[in-house]
Write a protein that binds this DNA or RNA. Sequence first.
DNA 1: AGCACA
Length: 466
Amino acid sequence: MSTSSQPQFRYTQTPSKVLHLRNLPWECAEEELVELCKPFGKIVNTKCNVGANRNQAFVEFADLNQAISMVSYYASSSEPAQIRGKTVYIQYSNRHEIVNNKSPGDTPGNVLLVTIEGVEPNDVTIETIHLVFSAFGFVHKIATFEKAAGFQALIQFTDAETASSARNALDGRSIPRYLLPDHVTSCYLRISYSAHTDLNIKFQSHRSRDYTNPYLPVNPTAMEGLLQPVVGPDGKKQEPQSNVLRASIENMQYAVTVDVLHKVFSAFGTVQKIAIFEKNGGTQALIQYPDVTTAAVAKESLEGHCIYDGGYCKLHLSYSRHTDLNVKAYSDKSRDYTISDPSLLATQVPGLPAAPNAWQNPQGVPVHHGTDYSASAAIQGQPPAGQVPAWDPNFQARPTYGSVPGQTYQSLTAPTYVNAARPAGSSPLSQPGASSMPMQQQQQPPWANVRQGGAAVLGRPPYYSR
DNA sequence: AGCACA
């Protein structure tokens, strides 16, 4: 009667609190797994869509006995374990814990992160990207940027389902050749999910679009052709200047905090925002000034200098492509000094113009996969259900035909934050001390004043040495 | 239907 040599017992494993489940239905959801397993104990971790057919999964119980009870139950049950009517085969995993490699990119969301491989950014226009992805649903916004990984785009759909259908159809595929310049033979799309839910597109430009907001001003500096490299006196091309500096910190023997950077870079003018992040195994920071001139002076003065004596924390400066950073107002890795009282932000309702610069999203997550400082991407409040995603009311320019976009934008922004909001390229507003002070400051730098601000914690004053 | 891969 009893069949003691069922095939599934041929590979009997030593018990583990991790169970291996197979023959799962297509795209079996974690919830379905949990439903099946939770009667036997507390599930502490899962890994779904495993295997070539993505029809296997792992479930980890809190306790070994819970896993044993589930395996024992179905070993003797006349009813097999089932999900959606499909028999699920359960056995002990040969590992004893789930190492969750669930990268953020595998967590579905309505925004896709697309890496376009094998092309120069100019080979694929934003119109092409829009065309390709519109096949799956309304594309709300696109932001493109260049990264070490290549040319990338964030593409915002209405919901995760639409985004997922686009990802499933296009991941690993090439953009059709007829949409590409002749010299490009193929360009493969690597698609993952972004953690963003609402991109903060500030301008319509060749690198970013907001298809939900026809009145969004066109960024004069971001338009094609205007971002020409500066040709230096030696005839060599220089990177385009920017009001935002990128600092790579070499030989970082001591912690470089936001406060330290603020102290150092404030010597040359008002520092508006700072963001620190890790890139390529090193520490980098973005420092935003109100204008290019101030940034240029700071760059020239600080390049190659060390924050601490002894060759520690040597600064290498370049111009960022960004002109306005999206950073958390106050965190250990970022600061927005244009926000007068960060505590106000806690009470700010997303989507409402509660604070003068509500466009500076308090919940903004500047770091995306560790490196995404795209000035045009940040999480905003979720759009109300059934509505077009809200763009920031402060940001919604009325049709002011004939005016300069940059100035239109300024006038719509609360006056106190004009500096913070001013797009690069418009004429620099007077910035007290910005142009004249730095040189003097360089002679008599601020370390004399540095106290407990961060450097003193380290027991040595900041010091710039060659 | 038979063990994950960043």
